[in-house]
Design a protein around this nucleic acid. Sequence first.
DNA 1: GTCTATAACCTGATAGAC
DNA 2: GTCTATCAGGTTATAGAC
Lengths: 209, 209
Amino acid sequence: MSTPNDNNGISTESRIIDAAKSLFIEKGYAETSMSDIAARAEINRPALHYYFRTKDKMFHAVIGDIVSAIVPRVYELLMQRGLPIADRIEGVIDAYFTLFKQNPRLPMFILREMNRDAGMLIDTITRLHLKEKLETVILSIENEMESGKLNRIPVRFLFFNFYGMLLTPFLAQDLVCTALLEDGETFDQMLANWKPCIMQQMLNLLQPR
Amino acid sequence: MSTPNDNNGISTESRIIDAAKSLFIEKGYAETSMSDIAARAEINRPALHYYFRTKDKMFHAVIGDIVSAIVPRVYELLMQRGLPIADRIEGVIDAYFTLFKQNPRLPMFILREMNRDAGMLIDTITRLHLKEKLETVILSIENEMESGKLNRIPVRFLFFNFYGMLLTPFLAQDLVCTALLEDGETFDQMLANWKPCIMQQMLNLLQPR
DNA sequence: GTCTATAACCTGATAGAC
DNA sequence: GTCTATCAGGTTATAGAC
């Protein structure tokens, strides 16, 4: 028993999603055409419309794929309550760095499409039933603040700090590589030096004095 | 003596640039059509092509307008060498906040178009002869680090920290307003609370211990 | 399930009248 | 300088044969 329409053991549908994902991430929704996707999936344009009737449905399939790969992973890493906060943060940074090194334009993609369609991210999270996981994380952090294990600071400011520092090098990657690296330094080497700086700043905010 | 082709005392050309600027910032290069610009400037599409022969030239006029309004201003604020570093940073934050409150989508616009056209920002800075100003700022900061007035830290990490914290609330403004504000809190009130957090983190990095 | 053919539309851009 | 008319090309999407 095999998946419908096999081609080298990979179903046509997942081949299309992979093609669409890489193109949307690379060029964005507006500058990716259904023809581009069909070409990369090695399929004809009308056949593409058979699988995903509109460009919009195609996009939502892709964004669902991405979000469901990130949110549960971050949830697990942050909720390992035995570990000290520094280790949990380091785990999350490592996970994001691994993901973004493989997909350098993923941060820009998510931001761009969030700005094109305001409800996009929240709608997707709701659709995939991941809202509860996020709320659990927030409550858990706030509990540790109440109990004095963490310093009190509004959670949204934690987010701004963390995601600001995490995403900025990737969002400005082209600029970084052409103008902000030291002689002979690679982007990955820079990231390795940047990581302890993120951790230091987060601990400044979180560790009780 | 009046500007050519007056219409309510505003030259057609500057009316076109204003229309194009607001549309590009709002929707981005790809999703803005020359028809959109012509409509907002209250002019016909062919007449628009008369003033700016291609969409690309239109875009470069707009981006030049924006960059030349930001870079010299930041330069002046940062180079007031009599002032302590905290006051200079506060001045820059205030200037950016004022600008971004008037144009909430400007940060997203610059990032998006930097990712569409890697050399865009550097080319514009070079074209407007603003490169020297930026290099002067960097050298000045590095000098204060050498002399021990500031803590030693790679300038690119200062950039990541500062622009990460400065831009993140605006880049995610829709998400912030729908999910991250406290009850009854406005975006501007949140920003006012966020500012001291930016300053604290910058001083953590810069002030010698 | 996948194709050919085509519809209906929008895009950036130009030529040429006024 | 600003218009009308028009072009060539690309877009999403559908109808219908196989």
